[in-house]
Design a binder for these strands. Sequence first.
DNA 1: GACATTAGCAACTAGTTGGTTGCACATCAG
DNA 2: CTGATGTGCAACCAACTAGTTGCTAATGTC
Lengths: 109, 109
Amino acid sequence: MAAVDRADAVFAALADGNRRRLLALLGERGEASATELARGLPVTRQAVQKQLGLLADAGLVSTRRDGREVLYRPTPEPMSDAVAWMAEVGGQWDDRLAALERRLARSRG
Amino acid sequence: MAAVDRADAVFAALADGNRRRLLALLGERGEASATELARGLPVTRQAVQKQLGLLADAGLVSTRRDGREVLYRPTPEPMSDAVAWMAEVGGQWDDRLAALERRLARSRG
DNA sequence: GACATTAGCAACTAGTTGGTTGCACATCAG
DNA sequence: CTGATGTGCAACCAACTAGTTGCTAATGTC
């Protein structure tokens, strides 16, 4: 199933705490550039850019060019694949996962 | 929030494809030893044992001793912390994204 | 045009990690 | 007791990764 391959990328992308923090930051601001994000973090712009690149590969962020800036925004659709995997593997034991999955899926239409 | 720390461990544990395969296998069989699992995989028992150890650290499997065998079984409860993180952050994104859409739409006229 | 700011790319380093081999210990069957 | 099977632990290795520095190119401001 294709969702599994995608889940692979999503889990790998979410495996790093700094990347999850970046995602959370992006969630708060809605949109931000790598330089902007790096300002509030103890790492260089290049490091942030690398991580954003990985997140983009997983489909978790998309970019928009505005003049000389590149703005990143979160695109949470792929997370439902990861949730789907967890729901499938852990589903036999708990239907809370299924409920959460429905909520997440619904929020993205 | 404590759930975040736990989510950290869970995401890290699920980041590896072989570990997820192990979890899926355990889900199918219900219970299995490291040696048993390694028989069907192209890796050594020790490698499987290491991975199961990581899964156990994340609370995703538990062990039971039966004679000279150690049987592993899945305990997917901790996955709900990871799902909770995704639901929380994802939900936040939705709000922000909606606001951003409105703002962009307005500014574009 | 001159200057400042931002993005993009490449090379390098330190640390992590998944896997291996090798060996010692434990348990069961004959 | 003996041989077979299974677990536990440690050292080692190759690959990957997150971060850095250093540079060039592009865009905006004066």
